[in-house]
């Protein structure tokens, strides 16, 4: 059985890790969708307050997005900076 090159092994595992880190996008997706649905409900109930509702909704969605962005940053670091290669 041929042995695996350690560099290739680490690169492959980093790619798997990046893919797993990107799963973090599920949570913000659900949260943002929920906020958008509530925003649509609020506009339907009170169309004259549309500007305020949209502003509040976007602000809340930006906060909800934070955890997803953390996952994305970890995925980007794993793929492009490759910190684990330095441990060889």
């Amino acid at each position: 059985m041929p042995s695996i090159d350690p560099k290739a092994f680490i690169l492959g595992c980093s790619a798997i890790g990046a893919g797993l880190a990107a799963i973090a996008g599920i949570g913000p997706g659900i949260g943002q969708g929920y906020a958008a649905g509530k925003g649509a409900e609020a506009v339907g109930r009170q169309p004259e307050a549309q500007g305020d509702i949209i502003r509040t909704m976007i602000l809340g969605q930006a906060i909800a997005e934070t955890t997803g962005i953390y996952g994305l940053i970890i995925a980007i670091i794993l793929l492009f900076v490759r910190p684990l290669l330095g441990a060889l």
Partner: peptide
């Protein structure tokens, strides 16, 4: 940190 990562992550992901 969260304030800067939010902007950075959005723009960098667009660039990539």
């Amino acid at each position: 940190i969260s304030l800067s990562f939010r902007l950075f992550g959005n723009i960098l992901s667009g660039v990539i």
